[in-house]
Every structure is written in structure tokens, then in C-alpha cells.
């Protein structure tokens, strides 16, 4: 983005445990304000690109990640508050033909 847009973390539903960084990529150690369903701020532990998710609190392995107030997957690695949440630590629970047999059980 040519324009400088201060990064913010957009929270969709109050029960969400991740938020979405909007605006310019936020470097690590930046304190970024929360907007939307929750107010406050969080210190990022890693640089997070525009549109990517950040953990709002410490989340142990196996935690169900909630966005839109709905489960969007489960953590396969523990994540600290302010850390990037994406394909390296979050897996889908649906359409997993790799782990579920053809009867869907």
C-alpha cells in the first residue's frame, strides 16, 4: 500500500480468540489497537501482514480457534498472545479426507 495506514486488529465477535490485522504490516513489538467487538490493544510478537490473524491471548495446543464467534479450526502448536495464527499452527476440522475415512466417521 502506498498510503500509510496505521495497523489495527479487527475483532468480529466478543468470544473470538483471534483478530485480523488490517492496515500496513505491523512489525514485531508494535502495540496495536483493537477495533470492533473488543477494545484495548495487544503487543505483536512477530511481524503480521495485512489480513492475517493474531492470537489475542496465550492458546495451548489443541485450542479451538474462534472467529466470527464460530470455530474455524484447531491449533496444532501452542501460540502466545500477539503471535501470528495461520497455516503453520492452525488446521481445519472440515473436509479432512486425509484423516477421515470415506464414511465420514
Amino acid at each position: 500500500m502506498n498510503r500509510a495506514i496505521a495497523p489495527k486488529i479487527w475483532i468480529i465477535a466478543p468470544e473470538d480468540n483471534v483478530g485480523t490485522v488490517v492496515g500496513n504490516e505491523a512489525p514485531a513489538r508494535t502495540i496495536v489497537p483493537l477495533i470492533g467487538a473488543v477494545s484495548g490493544s495487544i503487543e505483536l510478537q512477530s511481524p503480521i501482514p495485512h489480513g492475517h490473524k493474531v492470537a489475542l491471548k496465550q492458546l495451548p495446543i489443541g485450542t479451538e480457534v474462534v472467529k466470527y464467534g464460530v470455530v474455524i479450526g484447531r491449533l496444532v502448536r501452542p501460540v502466545g498472545a500477539g503471535e501470528h495464527v495461520h497455516t503453520h499452527n492452525l488446521e481445519s476440522l472440515r473436509g479432512r479426507g486425509d484423516t477421515v475415512n470415506a464414511q465420514g466417521d
Binding site: T20, H52, K53, I72, G73, E91, S92, R94
Partner: peptide
């Protein structure tokens, strides 16, 4: 673009 799972 930041989308991780089909649910999201």
C-alpha cells in the same frame, strides 16, 4: 490473503 481454513 490471510485465510487459513475452509471454515474461516
Amino acid at each position: 490473503g490471510g485465510l487459513t481454513t475452509i471454515e474461516e
